[in-house]
Protein backbone atom coordinates (compact mmCIF):
# COMPACT_ATOMS: atom_id res chain seq x y z
CA UNK A 1 0.00 0.00 0.00
CA UNK A 2 2.56 2.55 -1.01
CA UNK A 3 1.92 5.99 -2.43
CA UNK A 4 2.29 6.65 -6.14
CA UNK A 5 4.98 9.24 -5.66
CA UNK A 6 7.18 8.40 -8.63
CA UNK A 7 4.67 8.21 -11.46
CA UNK A 8 4.20 10.52 -14.40
CA UNK A 9 0.65 11.25 -15.48
CA UNK A 10 -0.32 12.40 -18.98
CA UNK A 11 -3.66 14.16 -19.06
CA UNK A 12 -4.78 14.81 -22.64
CA UNK A 13 -7.87 16.92 -23.22
CA UNK A 14 -8.96 15.30 -26.47
CA UNK A 15 -9.30 11.79 -27.80
CA UNK A 16 -6.90 12.61 -30.60
CA UNK A 17 -4.17 13.63 -28.17
CA UNK A 18 -4.80 10.52 -26.11
CA UNK A 19 -4.41 8.25 -29.11
CA UNK A 20 -1.23 10.02 -30.05
CA UNK A 21 0.25 9.43 -26.58
CA UNK A 22 -0.80 5.79 -26.78
CA UNK A 23 0.90 5.39 -30.13
CA UNK A 24 4.06 6.91 -28.71
CA UNK A 25 4.12 5.28 -25.26
CA UNK A 26 2.33 1.99 -25.94
CA UNK A 27 2.96 -0.47 -23.08
CA UNK A 28 4.86 2.11 -21.06
CA UNK A 29 1.59 3.72 -19.93
CA UNK A 30 -1.51 2.41 -18.31
CA UNK A 31 -4.81 4.10 -19.08
CA UNK A 32 -6.66 5.46 -16.08
CA UNK A 33 -10.35 6.30 -16.52
CA UNK A 34 -12.28 6.55 -13.24
CA UNK A 35 -9.40 4.77 -11.56
CA UNK A 36 -11.44 3.26 -8.75
CA UNK A 37 -9.83 -0.15 -9.11
CA UNK A 38 -6.57 0.76 -10.80
CA UNK A 39 -5.33 3.05 -8.02
CA UNK A 40 -5.68 0.32 -5.40
CA UNK A 41 -4.10 -2.33 -7.61
CA UNK A 42 -1.14 -0.13 -8.36
CA UNK A 43 -0.65 0.99 -4.75
CA UNK A 44 -0.88 -2.60 -3.54
CA UNK A 45 1.61 -3.78 -6.14
CA UNK A 46 -0.91 -6.14 -7.77
CA UNK A 47 -0.38 -4.23 -11.01
CA UNK A 48 3.09 -3.10 -12.04
CA UNK A 49 3.75 0.59 -11.54
CA UNK A 50 3.63 2.48 -14.79
CA UNK A 51 3.13 6.01 -15.90
CA UNK A 52 -0.53 6.84 -16.35
CA UNK A 53 -2.55 8.10 -19.27
CA UNK A 54 -5.37 9.93 -17.54
CA UNK A 55 -8.38 10.14 -19.84
CA UNK A 56 -10.74 11.28 -17.09
CA UNK A 57 -11.07 14.74 -18.61
CA UNK A 58 -11.92 13.65 -22.15
CA UNK A 59 -15.57 14.61 -21.91
CA UNK A 60 -16.24 13.66 -25.54
CA UNK A 61 -16.20 10.05 -24.31
CA UNK A 62 -19.16 10.57 -21.98
CA UNK A 63 -22.47 10.01 -23.75
CA UNK A 64 -25.44 7.70 -24.13
CA UNK A 65 -27.03 7.88 -27.58
CA UNK A 66 -29.56 5.99 -29.58
CA UNK A 67 -27.92 4.45 -32.65
CA UNK A 68 -29.62 2.75 -35.57
CA UNK A 69 -30.40 -0.52 -33.86
CA UNK A 70 -28.22 -0.11 -30.81
CA UNK A 71 -27.52 2.13 -27.88
CA UNK A 72 -24.09 3.73 -27.99
CA UNK A 73 -22.37 4.36 -24.68
CA UNK A 74 -19.19 6.43 -24.48
CA UNK A 75 -16.46 4.54 -22.64
CA UNK A 76 -16.08 7.17 -19.92
CA UNK A 77 -19.77 7.18 -19.04
CA UNK A 78 -20.16 6.66 -15.32
CA UNK A 79 -22.36 3.97 -13.84
CA UNK A 80 -24.46 6.65 -12.19
CA UNK A 81 -25.25 8.02 -15.64
CA UNK A 82 -25.95 4.55 -17.01
CA UNK A 83 -28.22 3.61 -14.11
CA UNK A 84 -30.23 6.80 -14.40
CA UNK A 85 -30.39 7.04 -18.20
CA UNK A 86 -33.96 6.82 -19.49
CA UNK A 87 -32.68 5.32 -22.71
CA UNK A 88 -30.95 2.47 -20.93
CA UNK A 89 -33.76 1.94 -18.46
CA UNK A 90 -36.22 1.62 -21.31
CA UNK A 91 -34.21 -0.43 -23.78
CA UNK A 92 -31.50 -2.19 -21.77
CA UNK A 93 -32.94 -2.35 -18.27
CA UNK A 94 -30.76 -5.22 -17.11
CA UNK A 95 -27.71 -3.08 -17.73
CA UNK A 96 -29.17 -0.25 -15.66
CA UNK A 97 -29.96 -2.72 -12.87
CA UNK A 98 -26.43 -4.08 -12.95
CA UNK A 99 -24.96 -0.57 -13.00
CA UNK A 100 -26.81 0.11 -9.75
CA UNK A 101 -25.04 -2.74 -7.97
CA UNK A 102 -21.45 -2.36 -9.13
CA UNK A 103 -20.48 -0.53 -5.96
CA UNK A 104 -21.28 2.36 -3.71
CA UNK A 105 -22.67 5.64 -5.01
CA UNK A 106 -19.15 7.03 -4.72
CA UNK A 107 -17.84 4.26 -7.00
CA UNK A 108 -20.77 4.61 -9.41
CA UNK A 109 -20.10 8.32 -9.72
CA UNK A 110 -16.53 7.80 -10.78
CA UNK A 111 -16.12 4.35 -12.30
CA UNK A 112 -16.77 4.12 -16.02
CA UNK A 113 -18.12 1.35 -18.18
CA UNK A 114 -14.97 1.34 -20.28
CA UNK A 115 -12.74 1.11 -17.23
CA UNK A 116 -14.82 -1.74 -15.90
CA UNK A 117 -14.52 -3.64 -19.19
CA UNK A 118 -10.77 -3.22 -19.49
CA UNK A 119 -10.19 -3.94 -15.81
CA UNK A 120 -11.71 -7.31 -16.72
CA UNK A 121 -12.58 -8.58 -13.27
CA UNK A 122 -14.44 -11.88 -13.74
CA UNK A 123 -16.86 -10.66 -11.05
CA UNK A 124 -17.63 -7.29 -12.67
CA UNK A 125 -21.37 -6.78 -12.49
CA UNK A 126 -21.67 -4.83 -15.72
CA UNK A 127 -20.27 -7.54 -17.97
CA UNK A 128 -22.91 -10.34 -17.91
CA UNK A 129 -25.65 -7.95 -19.12
CA UNK A 130 -23.33 -6.80 -21.90
CA UNK A 131 -22.84 -10.44 -22.94
CA UNK A 132 -26.56 -11.11 -23.29
CA UNK A 133 -27.14 -7.75 -24.96
CA UNK A 134 -24.59 -8.70 -27.64
CA UNK A 135 -22.34 -5.77 -26.86
CA UNK A 136 -19.79 -4.63 -29.38
CA UNK A 137 -16.70 -2.76 -28.21
CA UNK A 138 -15.24 0.01 -30.31
CA UNK A 139 -11.44 0.26 -30.16
CA UNK A 140 -9.65 3.22 -31.62
CA UNK A 141 -6.05 3.94 -32.43
CA UNK A 142 -4.29 6.40 -34.70
CA UNK A 143 -4.36 3.54 -37.21
CA UNK A 144 -8.14 3.30 -37.26
CA UNK A 145 -11.16 1.65 -35.66
CA UNK A 146 -11.91 -1.96 -34.74
CA UNK A 147 -15.24 -3.31 -33.59
CA UNK A 148 -15.00 -6.40 -31.40
CA UNK A 149 -17.91 -8.47 -30.07
CA UNK A 150 -17.63 -8.68 -26.29
CA UNK A 151 -17.18 -12.43 -26.22
CA UNK A 152 -14.11 -12.37 -28.40
CA UNK A 153 -12.73 -9.40 -26.46
CA UNK A 154 -12.05 -11.67 -23.48
CA UNK A 155 -9.56 -14.40 -24.27
CA UNK A 156 -8.81 -15.58 -20.76
CA UNK A 157 -8.26 -14.27 -17.24
CA UNK A 158 -7.49 -10.58 -17.78
CA UNK A 159 -6.37 -11.38 -21.34
CA UNK A 160 -7.95 -8.94 -23.75
CA UNK A 161 -8.10 -8.40 -27.48
CA UNK A 162 -6.75 -4.87 -27.33
CA UNK A 163 -3.45 -3.55 -28.64
CA UNK A 164 -1.24 -1.27 -26.60
CA UNK A 165 -1.96 1.63 -28.98
CA UNK A 166 -5.72 1.15 -28.82
CA UNK A 167 -8.25 2.82 -26.57
CA UNK A 168 -11.73 1.49 -25.84
CA UNK A 169 -13.96 4.42 -26.78
CA UNK A 170 -17.48 3.09 -27.06
CA UNK A 171 -19.74 0.21 -26.11
CA UNK A 172 -22.77 -0.63 -28.25
CA UNK A 173 -25.61 -2.73 -26.94
CA UNK A 174 -28.66 -4.14 -28.64
CA UNK A 175 -32.02 -2.71 -27.70
CA UNK A 176 -34.37 -5.09 -25.92
CA UNK A 177 -37.54 -5.72 -27.93
CA UNK A 178 -41.16 -5.70 -26.73
CA UNK A 179 -41.30 -9.48 -26.50
CA UNK A 180 -38.08 -9.71 -24.55
CA UNK A 181 -37.62 -9.72 -20.82
CA UNK A 182 -34.58 -10.01 -18.66
CA UNK A 183 -33.22 -9.92 -15.16
CA UNK A 184 -29.92 -9.17 -13.50
CA UNK A 185 -29.09 -11.22 -10.43
CA UNK A 186 -26.37 -10.75 -7.89
CA UNK A 187 -25.38 -12.85 -4.94
CA UNK A 188 -23.08 -10.98 -2.59
CA UNK A 189 -22.25 -11.71 1.03
CA UNK A 190 -23.68 -8.46 2.34
CA UNK A 191 -26.89 -6.59 1.60
CA UNK A 192 -24.92 -3.39 1.17
CA UNK A 193 -22.04 -2.87 -1.18
CA UNK A 194 -20.32 -6.24 -1.82
CA UNK A 195 -18.37 -7.99 -4.55
CA UNK A 196 -20.37 -10.73 -6.24
CA UNK A 197 -19.94 -14.38 -5.31
CA UNK A 198 -21.94 -15.09 -8.46
CA UNK A 199 -23.79 -12.73 -10.77
CA UNK A 200 -25.92 -13.46 -13.79
CA UNK A 201 -27.89 -11.82 -16.56
CA UNK A 202 -30.82 -13.54 -18.23
CA UNK A 203 -32.45 -12.36 -21.41
CA UNK A 204 -35.41 -14.24 -22.86
CA UNK A 205 -37.57 -13.81 -25.91
CA UNK A 206 -41.11 -15.09 -25.45
CA UNK A 207 -42.94 -16.86 -28.23
CA UNK A 208 -46.73 -16.69 -28.44
CA UNK A 209 -46.96 -20.00 -26.65
CA UNK A 210 -45.58 -19.20 -23.19
CA UNK A 211 -42.26 -20.65 -24.18
CA UNK A 212 -38.89 -19.08 -24.77
CA UNK A 213 -38.10 -18.54 -28.43
CA UNK A 214 -34.60 -17.53 -27.43
CA UNK A 215 -32.66 -17.46 -24.19
CA UNK A 216 -29.34 -15.90 -23.34
CA UNK A 217 -27.67 -16.40 -19.99
CA UNK A 218 -24.30 -15.10 -18.83
CA UNK A 219 -22.65 -15.57 -15.46
CA UNK A 220 -19.80 -13.85 -13.70
CA UNK A 221 -17.34 -14.86 -10.94
CA UNK A 222 -17.55 -18.52 -11.90
CA UNK A 223 -14.81 -18.73 -14.53
CA UNK A 224 -11.71 -16.77 -15.62
CA UNK A 225 -14.02 -14.63 -17.75
CA UNK A 226 -17.74 -14.07 -17.83
CA UNK A 227 -19.31 -17.10 -19.52
CA UNK A 228 -22.46 -17.92 -21.43
CA UNK A 229 -24.52 -20.79 -20.00
CA UNK A 230 -25.10 -22.54 -23.31
CA UNK A 231 -26.30 -25.79 -21.76
CA UNK A 232 -29.05 -24.00 -19.85
CA UNK A 233 -29.98 -21.89 -22.84
CA UNK A 234 -30.42 -25.02 -24.92
CA UNK A 235 -32.44 -26.79 -22.26
CA UNK A 236 -34.85 -23.87 -22.05
CA UNK A 237 -35.33 -22.83 -25.65
CA UNK A 238 -38.71 -23.92 -26.97
CA UNK A 239 -39.41 -26.11 -23.95
CA UNK A 240 -42.41 -26.23 -21.67
CA UNK A 241 -41.75 -24.15 -18.58
CA UNK A 242 -42.65 -25.45 -15.17
CA UNK A 243 -40.93 -25.76 -11.82
CA UNK A 244 -39.26 -29.02 -12.67
CA UNK A 245 -38.08 -28.04 -16.16
CA UNK A 246 -36.57 -24.79 -14.96
CA UNK A 247 -34.77 -26.63 -12.13
CA UNK A 248 -33.41 -29.13 -14.60
CA UNK A 249 -32.30 -26.43 -16.99
CA UNK A 250 -30.72 -24.33 -14.23
CA UNK A 251 -28.85 -27.41 -12.98
CA UNK A 252 -27.13 -27.77 -16.33
CA UNK A 253 -25.18 -24.57 -15.69
CA UNK A 254 -22.49 -26.61 -13.93
CA UNK A 255 -21.37 -27.76 -17.40
CA UNK A 256 -20.66 -24.19 -18.45
CA UNK A 257 -18.72 -22.86 -15.48
CA UNK A 258 -15.39 -23.55 -13.79
CA UNK A 259 -15.40 -21.76 -10.46
CA UNK A 260 -12.54 -21.69 -7.98
CA UNK A 261 -12.24 -21.39 -4.21
CA UNK A 262 -11.48 -17.93 -2.92
CA UNK A 263 -11.99 -15.78 0.14
CA UNK A 264 -15.65 -15.18 -0.78
CA UNK A 265 -16.68 -18.78 -1.30
CA UNK A 266 -15.73 -22.28 -2.32
CA UNK A 267 -16.04 -23.57 -5.87
CA UNK A 268 -18.73 -25.95 -4.68
CA UNK A 269 -20.80 -23.13 -3.18
CA UNK A 270 -20.40 -21.09 -6.36
CA UNK A 271 -21.62 -24.01 -8.46
CA UNK A 272 -24.72 -24.38 -6.32
CA UNK A 273 -25.34 -20.66 -6.23
CA UNK A 274 -25.13 -20.52 -10.02
CA UNK A 275 -27.90 -23.10 -10.27
CA UNK A 276 -30.03 -21.49 -7.59
CA UNK A 277 -29.60 -17.98 -8.90
CA UNK A 278 -30.69 -19.07 -12.37
CA UNK A 279 -33.70 -20.85 -10.86
CA UNK A 280 -34.65 -17.67 -9.00
CA UNK A 281 -34.21 -15.60 -12.15
CA UNK A 282 -36.29 -17.91 -14.30
CA UNK A 283 -38.98 -18.15 -11.63
CA UNK A 284 -39.17 -14.35 -11.45
CA UNK A 285 -39.39 -13.94 -15.22
CA UNK A 286 -42.10 -16.58 -15.55
CA UNK A 287 -43.97 -15.36 -12.49
CA UNK A 288 -44.00 -11.84 -13.87
CA UNK A 289 -45.55 -13.06 -17.10
CA UNK A 290 -48.11 -15.12 -15.21
CA UNK A 291 -48.98 -12.13 -13.04
CA UNK A 292 -49.43 -10.06 -16.16
CA UNK A 293 -52.29 -12.36 -17.06
CA UNK A 294 -50.71 -14.91 -19.34
Amino acid sequence: MNRLHDIEVYSPKTLEEALEILRREGDRVKVIAGGTDLIIQMKDGIMPRKNLLNIYSIDELRYIRMGNDSIRIGALTSFTDIASSALIRNYARILADAANTIGSIQIMNKASIGGNLVNASPAADSIPPLYVLDAVLVLRSVEGVREVPIQSFYRGYKKLDIRSDELLTEVRVRRMAEDEDGIFLKHGLRLGDAISVVNAALLVKWDGDDRFKDVKIALGAVAPTVVRARSCEEALTGKELNDSTIWDAASKVVNDISPIDDVRGTAEYRREMSVNLLYIGLWEIINKRNQAGW
Partner: peptide, 16 residues
Protein backbone atom coordinates in the same frame (compact mmCIF):
# COMPACT_ATOMS: atom_id res chain seq x y z
CA UNK B 1 -5.60 -13.97 7.85
CA UNK B 2 -7.30 -13.91 4.45
CA UNK B 3 -9.79 -11.14 5.12
CA UNK B 4 -7.49 -8.17 5.54
CA UNK B 5 -9.60 -5.29 4.31
CA UNK B 6 -13.16 -4.02 4.45
CA UNK B 7 -14.15 -5.59 1.14
CA UNK B 8 -13.37 -9.08 2.38
CA UNK B 9 -14.06 -8.65 6.10
CA UNK B 10 -17.64 -7.43 5.84
CA UNK B 11 -19.09 -5.35 8.64
CA UNK B 12 -22.77 -4.36 8.48
CA UNK B 13 -23.63 -1.55 6.10
CA UNK B 14 -26.67 0.67 6.42
CA UNK B 15 -28.61 -1.90 4.38
CA UNK B 16 -27.63 -4.76 6.68
Amino acid sequence: LRTINLSTYLIPSIKD
